[in-house]
Design a protein around this nucleic acid. Sequence first.
DNA 1: CGACATTCAATTGCGAACAATTAAATGTGA
DNA 2: TCACATTTAATTGTTCGCAATTGAATGTCG
Lengths: 153, 153
Amino acid sequence: MARKPSAADAPLRLDNQICFAVYSAAHAFNRVYKPLLDRLGLTYPQYLVMLVLWERDDVPVKEIGEKLFLDSGTLTPLLKRLEAAHLVKRTRSSEDERQVLIALTPQGHALREKARSVPQSILAATDCSVPELVAMKDEIVALRDRLNAVIGD
Amino acid sequence: MARKPSAADAPLRLDNQICFAVYSAAHAFNRVYKPLLDRLGLTYPQYLVMLVLWERDDVPVKEIGEKLFLDSGTLTPLLKRLEAAHLVKRTRSSEDERQVLIALTPQGHALREKARSVPQSILAATDCSVPELVAMKDEIVALRDRLNAVIGD
DNA sequence: CGACATTCAATTGCGAACAATTAAATGTGA
DNA sequence: TCACATTTAATTGTTCGCAATTGAATGTCG
């Protein structure tokens, strides 16, 4: 038996869910990045790891994980692929043998120059002004941090 | 040789990237949803499919894909898992044998009632007002649609 | 010093996500 | 009607993402 749409249904409607907006926007970003990153031989998560390393080299896996909100189950195989591509080197820390330090190779450093044009291309694709994007980014980060705060209960 | 941070580096900084904000917020949402959806026996993408079906039943795979921005490579195995869980039935359309129609089972319908409390729990986790969330959602959807428009070139 | 807990990366298994290909059904035009 | 293109799902292979477990190194407390 057919039901009339009622106000009680609104919370379950797809279009009303901010989480779906975020989920689908993340996929849209990924699709825009794809052709740009293909030229660098990187996937998007690999690109994120490279961003971390371009800011600070010789970083333990743990720290990369904290910055990207990813765990070793994701990072270990990803980093092995970056190593196979000769972009990073993985070495056990001598001070703490539990840690694996990730360092850029010369090719890894060099890739940074090829990556410089990427943010500009993405900016163009958003068809937004920089201040608009910064404002949105700050709002989304604040939301993310509130969500992450709830997890640790 | 160490480099001074310069303005030219800003575009490649992780914290400046809206895409990473969106990417990490999507994962944060997923982690908040996880315990709620575990009780329903659903993953987050499966929950999205159920949202579509609760709005309109007996839908071809294609249409689900268009609403969620997913293709058959993702949906076919996901829908088979939902079928194995007795939540949906997959049947070839008699009018067009190429299409597979997805229909809810009685259990699939019934699950809707158990799902009603989910949006409220998510809302609480965001620690945001409804108008704030609606405004953000609209902005993110607009951004997503502009990104998707660029893809089709 | 020695039992114990903690930390860290690696591993395993499962479920997305997507590109590329395949195969069947349908539509179209000569 | 028949060749051909288009549409639709399914399949295959690669890469994430995460829970759960393992094993080695380190830290802590009696």
